[in-house]
Amino acid sequence: MSNIPYILEDRPDTGLNNSKLGIWIFLASEVMLFGGLFSAYVFLRIAAPEGDFDYWGSKLNVPMATFNTMVLITSSVTMVMSWASLKLQQFDKYKMYLGITILCALAFLVVKYFEYTSKFEYGVYPSSSTFMGIYFTLTGLHVLHIIGGLFVLVYFWTKQADKMWEENQDLLANRIEITGLYWHFVDLVWIFLFPILYLL
C-alpha cells in the first residue's frame, strides 16, 4: 500500500508507529494553541472589572451547552466503539458507530448555530465585551476543529472505508485510532471550555 515505513508496524527504536507518534506531536501543538487562549482568558478575567465576566457569562445558554457536552461525550464513546468494532472485525457495527459519531458532530454544530444566532439577534457580538471576545474566539476555534474532524469522519464513512477494509484491515483500524485520538482531543477542549465559560 505504502512505501512510507512504520505506518503500521512499530519502529524498533521508539516502539511506536509513526502515525501515533505524529498525532501525539500534533496534539501537543494543539495544547499550546488552546493553552495560550486559555491563559488569555485567565488574564482577561483577572484584569476585568469585578462582576463583568459574571454578568456577560450569565447571558450564555447553559442548557444548550450542557446538551452539547453530553453530545460530545456520546460522540467520544461511539468513536472508541467504532474502533473497538474494527478490532473485533465487525465492519457493520463500525459503520453504525461512526455514523452516530457523525450525527453527534452535526448535532453539536446545529446547537452552536442556534446559540450564536440568538446572540447576534440581541446585538451581542465579539466586540460587545471582553468576555464575548474571548468566548467567540475560543468557541469559534473549537467549532473549526469540529468541522475539520467532521470531514475526516465522513471520509472514513464513505465507500473509501469499504475499499480500505477490503484491501488492508489493519490500515483502516490504524486510521480510525488516529482519527479517534484527534476527536477525543476536541472533546477534551470542550470539557475545559464548558465550565470556564458557562458555569464559572
Binding site: T69, M70, I73, V77, M81, A84, F194, Y198, L200
Partner: peptide, 19 residues
C-alpha cells in the same frame, strides 16, 4: 468504556447543578 461514560455524565451533572 460505558463505566467511564456514566462517570463523565455524573460529573457533568454535578458541575451543572453547582453552576
Amino acid at each position: 468504556i460505558w463505566k467511564v461514560t456514566l462517570l463523565l455524565t455524573i460529573i457533568t451533572a454535578v458541575e451543572v447543578a453547582l453552576g
